[in-house]
Amino acid sequence: MDINFIIAAIMTVVGISTPILLAGLGELVVEKAGVLNLGVEGMMLLGAIAGFAVTVYTGSPWLGVVGAGVAGALGGMFFGLFVLGLNSNQVATGLALTIFGTGLSSLIGLSFVGRIVAPFSSIFPPELARDPLLKVIFGYSPIVYFALIMVAVVAWFLKSTRAGLILRAVGENDLSAHSIGYSVVGVRFLAIAFGGAMAGIGGAYFSMVITPMWAERMTAGRGWIALALVVFAGWRSGRLAVGAYFFGLLMALELYAKAAGFSILPSQFWAAMPYLMTVVVLALISMRDRAGSNAPACLGRPFIPAT
């Protein structure tokens, strides 16, 4: 195994992990506020098509990423309107958001099929980004660095800021937070919007970086892996990053197995691997810790204040 292969492999894993890392970070914040949003996949697809469309019209991938974030956030706010404003069931509404996002992105995407967008130019000098060795550090899309910075930002926000403390309090005991005088609905709405924006940017990574073209349902269920990742990480952002790269490794195995003509197991098996691992990991975690003691206590429960 030569050094070039290892560098290529690392770059594949980091790239393929970035969308689930972004979406997972967003969902982590949402769940810490006590809301379970199963619409991650839908918001990712909305972000994917919005990012692509904005880039096509403006020619600027930077604006495209902003557009993806806005679209994802709008999808999340739509979800928030139902679960917070009308106290609808979070699981059912989240599933509906996924179906809605899949459908709407396909509809809008019809007119973009076959078009190609300009990729991001590197934010580092080309000598660094194209250097055969140093590109393992400098050779990625700006979204990859954004995701890594966000890991630290989310960890710092939740642990050290007052706003983060309030957000955790809302997820831990909504009625108490309400009785102290915090706006439970307001905090949750903002968290959901943030989660949507992160999922949207994660989705845009598919349409703007991995394959700079639009295809229906191109996120291929990665939103569900992001959801499992949050549980896997025990609602901690550092562990979420480790988990995301672990799942990225599994997903990369499929590509390499296919490319190497690895025929002991059919390629479908490798493709199914991350999803199988999701099930196995979740089962192992629930066996180890029956109560799921790290989970925010109010996760998934509607907030109904006593009058």
């Binding site: 309090a169 831990e172 005991n173 108490s176 009785s179 915090y182 925010p296």
Partner: peptide, 22 residues
């Protein structure tokens, strides 16, 4: 001081008190 405490079980004493301060 409420009958049913409005405390956050997973947080520390200090964090709980900080939340109650305006």
């Amino acid at each position: 001081v409420f009958q049913h405490f409005s405390l956050f079980e997973a947080l520390t004493v200090l964090e709980n008190i900080a939340l109650g301060m305006d």
